[in-house]
């Protein structure tokens, strides 16, 4: 009955994420796999190529911790607040290799990877200075109309990590709310680690298959990590910790600030459970949102 995919985050990272890997942590603002990123830091992975449309705080933390040699991205800021300071420092000092796209191009790269295509065409990028600094952005002439389009190569991460509301033991992952880049990033990868708030019975999934965004076929490991996306959010489970994002700017004003934060919140805890305990019941309770169910849908029964 069990496929043996259900495991701990410690084991999943140890088994699937290796030095030098291209790692895609999925999730656009919603359901960012922070717990997985922290475990990668704790296990001291090095020379990773981090790929993420919006590096967000998680890549900033991994860069500060020395995990990354390169970042492939399209928007490297603290949303609504300002800069990612470790990312910014590393780039300004020439310490981090970058490969930069637009969101549409980054998602097109994943779509090509997921589709088994070598590249993806799009109407964008041309006229900007991005092709001049990124030789991976090229042009292609349409064989039917003759028009010139931009083309970007497929992206095939060694490992993609998604975080979601729930999955069954086979790794059929159900997501609602903002889906972002999660489906393309999962289908494009060689291995997928699915972190979820809850591992549920297979019938919960089978009764509502439209909500399955990543089927178990492409998932290698399933890990229950309640609160694993904090300080980002999980629709229906907990709110975005906007205060954390605003305060992060001050916490990281100096390299010492980063080191102290990583010592306390990553190296200083064994796992996400200890992290949540350190945040405290009060903070967690503040992030709980009132329940709001949608109307049930009728799938029918067919025999």
């Amino acid at each position: 009955m069990s496929s043996g995919k259900v495991t701990t985050l410690t084991e999943a990272i140890a088994r699937f994420v290796h030095d030098g890997h291209t790692v895609y942590l999925a999730g656009f603002t919603h359901a960012i796999p922070f717990a997985a990123g922290h475990e990668i830091i704790r296990q001291r992975r090095r020379n990773l190529i981090l790929a993420r449309a919006t590096p967000d705080l998680i890549c900033d933390q991994m860069i500060a911790a020395g995990c990354a040699r390169k970042l492939i991205f399209s928007w490297g800021g603290n949303p609504g607040v300002g800069s990612l300071r470790a990312f910014r420092r590393a780039v300004e000092r020439g310490e981090l290799e970058i490969e930069e796209y637009t969101h549409f191009a980054m998602l097109s790269r994943l779509a090509a990877g997921a589709s088994g295509l070598p590249f993806f065409p799009l109407r964008s990028l041309l006229g900007s200075d991005l092709p001049g600094v990124n030789p991976q952005i090229r042009t292609i002439r349409c064989p039917f109309t003759g028009e010139e389009l931009a083309a970007v190569p497929s992206l095939r991460p060694d490992v993609t990590v998604v975080h979601a509301q729930r999955a069954d033991a086979e790794g059929n992952v159900q997501i609602w709310g903002i889906v972002g880049d999660q489906r393309e990033a999962a289908f494009a990868a060689s291995r997928v680690i699915a972190c979820v708030e809850e591992v549920v019975d297979e019938l919960v999934v089978a009764n509502d298959p439209n909500r399955t965004m990543v089927p178990g076929e492409v998932v290698s490991a399933v890990v229950a990590v309640p609160f694993g996306a904090h300080p980002s959010y999980v629709q229906g489970y907990y709110d975005r910790d906007n205060q954390f994002y605003i305060e992060w700017d001050g916490v990281t004003a100096t390299p010492d600030g980063y080191a102290a934060w990583l010592d306390a919140w990553v190296h200083g805890v064994r796992d996400r459970q200890e992290y949540a305990a350190r945040l405290g019941q009060g903070r967690l309770a503040q992030l709980q949102t009132p329940t709001r169910y949608t109307a049930p849908v009728n799938y029918g029964t067919f025999s």
């Binding site: 800021g77 637009t102 900007s128």
Partner: peptide
């Protein structure tokens, strides 16, 4: 931060 979706 870079383009995000701005160029698109």
């Amino acid at each position: 931060p870079g383009s995000g979706g701005a160029c698109d």
